[in-house]
Design a protein around this nucleic acid. Structure first.
Length: 745
DNA sequence: GAAGTGTTAAATCGC
DNA sequence: TTAACACTTC
C-alpha cells in the first residue's frame, strides 16, 4: 500500500519539495521555527510510505536524545502500523551501537567502558600525580578542555603537538598521550572517542563500512551546523556509496563551536556533496512578528552569515518587555510575579532562560517562596551523583573486574581500609607488569607483596568482588540490589544517619527502580549502562511542565508560549570570556536562539548588580549590547512594579533613555550597629548556617582598631564571647582574638 | 587510615 | 556562598 499519507495538506511548498527530494544530497537551510524537525520527520515517513525505503534502511542523526525520541514518536504517529522503526539516534549513541558490535576490529572489547567528564577528570588528576604536574602551573581544567578540543578536531596526541604552538603544548601533549594510552589499556572510551573510534573503524575496514553504507541507504542529519570534524567525517563515510543525505540546519543557530562544531561544514555542503540541492525554509510558524523582528534585528549584526528573510503570517503580537533589576533577587522577584500572573490566567509552557547555570539558583529560591512549581534542566543530574555513579561502577566491576576506571571508584568506597599508599602501590605494580589494577591485585595476593594488614583487606575485597558475579544471573534490578547489599555500600549510608545520607539511599533506590525497567531484555545490563552514560540533562525536560528553568544552549530546538531571557548584561551575556576571545558572533547567535524560543510573549531582564562568589560586583553592570540592537519600537514602555520605570523614547533603546539607574544605597542589614551577647543571638541575627558548632563564618564583618575583618569563630565562654577574627593584610592573614560585645558593622 | 579542621578556589556553554 | 583539598591529629 502506498501513498496513504496526504503530505501536501500538511506541508508548505518548500517543505514538500524537501520531503519529496528523494535521491541525492539535499541541504535544507531553515530559519528558526520554520519546521525543520517536522520536515525531516515527514521525510522519513514519506520514504517509507511511498516505498522508497524500508524503515530500517533509514538513519536519522540528531544531537540530543530528546530530539531523537521526539522524532521517533512523531514518525510512529504518522505511520501507525510500523513494525520495524527507523533508526533515530544521536551521534554518540550511534557510535556506541556500532562499536559494541565491531570494537574487536580496532582493539577494544564489545564491553568497553564509556568514560564521562567526571571519569576524565579523575584520570587526568591521576596522570598529573604521576608526572608531577601541578594544577597551579598548568590548570587541569585547561588541559582537559584543550585535549577535548583537540579530539573534536580529530587530532591524536602527536597531531595536536604538530598543530599547536601554545606555551604549554609540550606538557599537555605528555598528559594527552598518557591519557589516551591509559584509556586504551583500560578498554575505555571517552565521549569524543565514541565518534573518533567509529570513524577509525569505518575508515580502516572497508567491509564494515560498505555494510553500513548499504544498510542505511538514507541518511538524515539534524542541526547540521553543529557537526564537528569527526562527526562530519562519519557522515561522509556513511554516505560514501549512496549519496542520499538530507542535512537540515541554520547557520544562525550555530552555538557549539566550543565543542568543535564547525560552521563551515554547512557552508560548504554544496562542494562536499556534488549535485546538492539547497532548499530554504523561510516561513516561521512559531513567533509573533515583534519577536521575529527583534531576533532578526539582533542577528543581522553578524557579518558572517547568509541572508535569510524570515517571515510569519502571525500578528505583531505583544511588545517585548524589558526589566532592569537592581540585583538578581529583584530580577527573580519580577519574573516570579509575572510567571504567577501568566499561570493564573491559564498560560502554561513558560521558560526562564539564562546564559550560565549558576543563575538558576536565585530563581529556584524565589519560585519556592512563591510556591511556583518548576522544572530545572541541568545542575547536578541524577546520573552524576556520586552514589549513583558508584553503584554503576559496582555493576561494571561485577561484570568485568578488569575495568580500571570503575575499580578505582569502588576500591575504598565505602572505606574498607585500602588507602592511598596501598592504591599507589597497586597502580605502580599494574604499570610495571602491564596488568589491570585487578590483575595487579590478584598478582600481589598470590606473591604476598603486601604487609599483613593490607593483604587481609585486599583479600577480603577480592573475595567480595568474586561473589558479585553470580548475582548477574538475576534480573538486573535484583542483581544491582544484591551487589550493593553485599558490598556494604548501602549499609555505610544507613549506618550514619543524616539528611544527605538519606537522600543517597533514596537515589540508589531510584536507580534500582530504573534498572527494573531494563530487566529481562537481552543485553539489558549493557543498555542500562549505556543509557546511564549517555544520559543528558535535557532528557529530564518535560514539555508538559508549566515552568522550566534552563540554559540557552539547552533551549535550542524547543519553543514556549512565554519566555523570560534573564541576565542580559555585558559580561554575563555576552559572556566576558566571549568578549575577551572576540567570539561575539556566536554569543549573538545564542541570543537569536533565545529570542526565537518565544511564541507569544517575551521578557528580557538584566541586573545592575550581581553577586559572584558571594561578592558584589564593584561597578554597575552595563546592559547587554544585544538589548540595544533591538529596535525600540518593539519594546514595551511600561515596567514591572518593583524595578525603576524605564520609558522608551522615539528611536532610543529603552534602557538608554533612563539616566538614573544607580542603585539606591543598600539597605542596612538588620544586625548592624547592634551589640550581641550570645553566640545564638549573633547566629540568629545573621541567619548563619554552618555545620560546625559555634562557628560563624562568611559574610559577617567586624570592625575594630585593626580595620575590617571576617569572623571565623565565636565561642561562648560563659561570661564573654571569644571571637576569632581574620584580618587580611598585604596577602598575609593575621589571626587575632578580641573579646565580647563587639560592635558589628 | 580515618576523621576533623583549616584553606582556598570557584563558575560559560554540553554529548 | 560552598565544596573540594590539604594538612594535622588520633
Amino acid at each position: 500500500m502506498s501513498g496513504r499519507i496526504d503530505f501536501q495538506s500538511q506541508l508548505n511548498p518548500q517543505q514538500l519539495r524537501a520531503v519529496q527530494h528523494v535521491e541525492g544530497p539535499v541541504l535544507i537551510l531553515a530559519g528558526a521555527g520554520s519546521g525543520k524537525t517536522r520536515t525531516i520527520t515527514h521525510k522519513i515517513a514519506y520514504l517509507i510510505d511511498r516505498q522508497y525505503s524500508l524503515p530500517d534502511q533509514i538513519l536519522a542523526v540528531t544531537f540530543t536524545n530528546k530530539a531523537a525520541t521526539e522524532m521517533r514518536e512523531r514518525v510512529e504517529q504518522l505511520l501507525q502500523h510500523l513494525s520495524i522503526p527507523p533508526l533515530v539516534s544521536t551521534f554518540h549513541s550511534f557510535g556506541v551501537r556500532v562499536l559494541r558490535r565491531h570494537a574487536s576490529r580496532i582493539g577494544y572489547s564489545s564491553n568497553f567502558t564509556i568514560c564521562d567528564k567526571d571519569d576524565q577528570k579523575r584520570l587526568l588528576k591521576q596522570i598529573y600525580g604521576e608526572l608531577g604536574f601541578k594544577d597551579e602551573y598548568l590548570p587541569l581544567a585547561k588541559t582537559h578542555s584543550v585535549i577535548s578540543r583537540a579530539k573534536n578536531q580529530g587530532w591524536a596526541p602527536d597531531e595536536y603537538l604538530k598543530n599547536s604552538r601554545d606555551f604549554d603544548s609540550e606538557s599537555i601533549h605528555q598528559v594527552f598521550s598518557r591519557y589516551d594510552e591509559y584509556l586504551r589499556k583500560s578498554d575505555a572510551a571517552d565521549f569524543d572517542d565514541l565518534i573518533l573510534l567509529t570513524v577509525k573503524l569505518l575508515q580502516e575496514h572497508a567491509d564494515i563500512r560498505n555494510r553500513f553504507c548499504d544498510r542505511y541507504k538514507y541518511i538524515l542529519v539534524d542541526e547540521y551546523q553543529d557537526t564537528n570534524a569527526p562527526q562530519y567525517e562519519l557522515v561522509k563515510l556513511l554516505t560514501s556509496r549512496h549519496q542520499n543525505i538530507s542535512a537540515v540546519g541554520d547557520e544562525d543557530q550555530s552555538i557549539y563551536s566550543f565543542r568543535g562544531a564547525d560552521i563551515t561544514n554547512i557552508l560548504r555542503f554544496e562542494e562536499d556533496f556534488s549535485g546538492a540541492e539547497v532548499i530554504k525554509l523561510e516561513q516561521n510558524y512559531r513567533s509573533t512578528q515583534n519577536i521575529l523582528d527583534a531576533a532578526t534585528a539582533v542577528v543581522s549584526n553578524n557579518l558572517s552569515r547568509k541572508e535569510k528573510v524570515l517571515w510569519t503570517a502571525e500578528q505583531a503580537g505583544e511588545p517585548i518587555s524589558l526589566y532592569a533589576a537592581n540585583d538578581a533577587r529583584e530580577e527573580a522577584l519580577f519574573v516570579a510575579r509575572r510567571v504567577r500572573q501568566h499561570l493564573d490566567s491559564g498560560v502554561s509552557g513558560i521558560a526562564i532562560l539564562y546564559r550560565t547555570n549558576f543563575q538558576s539558583r536565585q530563581f529556584e529560591e524565589i519560585f519556592r517562596m512563591f510556591s511556583i512549581p518548576y522544572r530545572l534542566v541541568g545542575g547536578v543530574s541524577f546520573y552524576h551523583r556520586k552514589e549513583v555513579r558508584d553503584s554503576l561502577a559496582y555493576l561494571r566491576i561485577a561484570r568485568n573486574p578488569e575495568d580500571n576506571i570503575s575499580l578505582e571508584r569502588i576500591l575504598n568506597a565505602p572505606p574498607r581500609g585500602i588507602g592511598r599508599v596501598t592504591r599507589d602501590k597497586l597502580r605502580r605494580l599494574a604499570d610495571e607488569k602491564s596488568l589491570s589494577l585487578w590483575g595487579a591485585l590478584q598478582h600481589s595476593l598470590r606473591e604476598n607483596l603486601f604487609p599483613a594488614r593490607a593483604h587481609l583487606v585486599l583479600k577480603t575485597f577480592s573475595e567480595l568482588v568474586e561473589r558479585f558475579r553470580p548475582a548477574l544471573d538475576l534480573p538486573l534490578h535484583l542483581a544491582l540490589e544484591t551487589i550493593l547489599d553485599k558490598s556494604g555500600y548501602l549499609e555505610a549510608f544507613r549506618n550514619e544517619a543524616s539528611e544527605s545520607n538519606d537522600n543517597r539511599v533514596l537515589n540508589i533506590q531510584e536507580l534500582i527502580a530504573v534498572a527494573r525497567d531494563y530487566s529481562g531484555d537481552e543485553g539489558s545490563l549493557q543498555s542500562f549502562l549505556d543509557q546511564a552514560a549517555l544520559y543528558s540533562e535535557l532528557d529530564e525536560f518535560d514539555s508538559g511542565a508549566d515552568v522550566t528553568l534552563m540554559t540557552l544552549h539547552n533551549a535550542k530546538g524547543l519553543e514556549f508560549p512565554v519566555v523570560f531571557l534573564a541576565g542580559c548584561e555585558e559580561g554575563l551575556f555576552p559572556h566576558s570570556r566571549a568578549i575577551e576571545e572576540n567570539d561575539l558572533e556566536e554569543e549573538r547567535r545564542l541570543c537569536y536562539v533565545g529570542l526565537t524560543r518565544a511564541q507569544k510573549k517575551l521578557y528580557l531582564s538584566y541586573c545592575r548588580r550581581r553577586r559572584f562568589f558571594g561578592r558584589e560586583t564593584d561597578e554597575l553592570n552595563e546592559p547587554s549590547r544585544f538589548l540595544s540592537e533591538i529596535p525600540a519600537k518593539l519594546l514595551d514602555s511600561s515596567w514591572g512594579q518593583s524595578g525603576q520605570m524605564v520609558r522608551s523614547q522615539s528611536n532610543q533603546p529603552a534602557f538608554l533613555s533612563s539616566q538614573a539607574l544607580r542603585s539606591p544605597a543598600k539597605p542596612k542589614k538588620a544586625y548592624t550597629g547592634k551589640t550581641y551577647n550570645s553566640v545564638e543571638s549573633i547566629k540568629a541575627a545573621l541567619g548563619a548556617r554552618s555545620g560546625r558548632s559555634g562557628l560563624v563564618s562568611g559574610a559577617l564583618i567586624v570592625h575594630d582598631k585593626f580595620g575590617k575583618g571576617k569572623i571565623l569563630k565565636v565561642e561562648d565562654t560563659g561570661t564573654d564571647l571569644k571571637i576569632t577574627v581574620q584580618f587580611p593584610g598585604r596577602g598575609i592573614k593575621k589571626l587575632l582574638q578580641s573579646f565580647a560585645k563587639l560592635k558589628l558593622l
